[in-house]
Amino acid sequence: MHAVTPGAVEDLTVEFAGEEYAVAPDAVFTVGREGDLTIDDNLFLHRHFLTIRNVDGLWLLSNVGSRLSATVTDSGGRVQAWLAPGARLPLVFASTSVIFSAGPTTYELTIHAAEPTFRETQPEADDDGLSTIGDVPLTHSQRVMILALAEPLLRREGTGMSELPTSAQAAERIGWTLTRFNRKLDNVCDKLDRIGVPGMRGGVRSYATNRRVRLVEHAIAARLVTRQDLPLLDEELHAGTGPED
């Protein structure tokens, strides 16, 4: 990526569920249960959760909530940040995805900048022709497990909201026992926790739910699974319980 020389304040738009919202450079744009972008009447969602404002020519995304966090990534999935309550990030890319969960519902919106501070360039490939930026090695069954959880988000068109399945529903989707599914979920969350992905662990009461939604947020943002991987779900279901990996 390379920097673009700052100039006049660029146009910024927010896309959600097929609608686009213009962000005025002299005002604070609010996202939440109420605000300029009213996401949902979900009571798990903060009344005011995210704000976008321009400070001295730089667009800033802030988390003004007290409990929820958001995953923020560039359009290529090469840069990812976890926006915790009270934190803020500069919006420097042409397209920035924001993914967050409130209760069982996961939301995604995209922020578009007409004149981004940084423009994306293709990363150099390794000798084998493959890029390893942000790469997390997954076994086939680990990828299938993530897909079973992320399927609603991957199948919907564009940005919007999706209800995540429970572990029992996801296990049934691919013909696994709940015990096997939870074992794979433990393995993947431990793997991501070891490399520093936040939110993979939590309190005793909230751990099961929080790690599931956080795993989906990270997997979508980091492109660990994509829409093109969805046929693996039906293949796994029709194959029956195969060997462990």
Rank of each mutant, 00 (worst) to 15 (best):
V4M: 13
L12I: 13
T13H: 10
G18I: 08
E20A: 10
V23C: 01
D26P: 05
T30K: 13
E34P: 01
G35F: 05
I39P: 02
R47I: 00
R53T: 10
N54P: 02
V55Q: 14
V55I: 15
W59A: 03
L60Q: 12
V64S: 02
S66E: 13
T73E: 11
A81W: 13
R88I: 02
P90W: 07
T96C: 05
S97I: 09
I99E: 03
F100K: 11
Y107E: 02
E108A: 11
H112F: 08
A114Y: 02
P116C: 01
P116Q: 07
G129W: 08
L130A: 05
L130S: 04
H140Q: 12
H140V: 12
H140G: 01
R143I: 01
L149Y: 07
P152I: 03
L153S: 07
R156A: 00
G160D: 00
S162P: 00
A170C: 06
T179A: 14
L185D: 02
K191A: 10
L192V: 06
L192N: 06
P198K: 12
G199I: 05
M200N: 05
V213D: 08
R214V: 01
V216K: 09
R227N: 03
P231K: 14
L232Y: 07
E236H: 11
H238Q: 13
A239F: 14
E244Q: 12
